[in-house]
Amino acid sequence: MLVEVLRRHGGIAPRALLGAKFVVGEDDSTTVIEVEVSPFDLLDSEEQRTSTSRLWTRPFTPGLPSDMADAVLHGLTTDPRITLPPGVLRVDRAGFDVMNSSEAIFAKTASLLGIAVSTRLSARDPELILRTAIQSW
């Protein structure tokens, strides 16, 4: 599952990209959430890899900065609409914008990702639930 968020606040446009996969546990143990981070240089350069954005003209820098990992974990664990069965939810894809990404937007994006995964695992269509979540912002 992959979720991209772009918000508009006057002249700023916070945005984030997160992707995850869920592996159902073989027993009735616990649910584990893993958030992968990427080491990189925060300076934009022409040689740096990029990842295409579907909502914005500028591409993302791939990876999740380590200082955003707590925000992602917070977004995945505080929304009551996220109910995961035993297994492993691994956030293994991310993209950020050096100028327009923040902890707040990563927390919101993680919450939407968790809702989408949770909804799909319960065999429901996530579109209405995600629209409701976005409208509550």
Rank of each mutant, 00 (worst) to 15 (best):
A16E: 02
D125E: 10
V72G: 04
T61D: 10
I115S: 01
P80N: 07
F22R: 03
S118E: 04
S66R: 15
P65N: 12
R7G: 13
D41W: 09
V117N: 01
V24F: 11
K21F: 12
A110Y: 03
R58Y: 14
L64C: 04
A107G: 11
A71G: 03
P85A: 10
S51N: 05
D27H: 10
S29C: 07
P59E: 09
R8Q: 09
V37S: 08
T61I: 15
L2N: 12
D79T: 10
F106T: 13
L64S: 03
R90I: 07
E34N: 03
D92I: 04
A110S: 01
W137A: 12
L73Y: 11
T109F: 05
D125S: 09
P65H: 07
S66M: 15
H74F: 14
L121N: 03
S122C: 05
R124A: 08
D92P: 03
A107S: 14
S53P: 11
V117I: 04
F96K: 07
R49G: 06
S101V: 08
S122M: 07
S38N: 09
P80H: 07
A116N: 00
D125W: 04
G19E: 02
V98H: 13
K21I: 13
D28S: 12
I115C: 01
E46W: 02
N100K: 12
R93S: 11
I134K: 02
L43I: 13
T57E: 15
G10S: 05
A116Y: 00
A116S: 02
R93N: 11
V5L: 08
I12Y: 11
L55H: 06
P85L: 05
G87Q: 08
M68K: 13
G63F: 07
P59C: 08
G63A: 12
L6R: 14
M68E: 08
P86F: 06
D92R: 08
W56F: 15
A107H: 08
S102T: 11
M99Y: 13
T31L: 04
R81N: 02
F106K: 10
R58M: 12
D92M: 06
Q135M: 09
S102Q: 11
N100E: 15
M68D: 07
R81S: 05
E26N: 11
V98W: 06
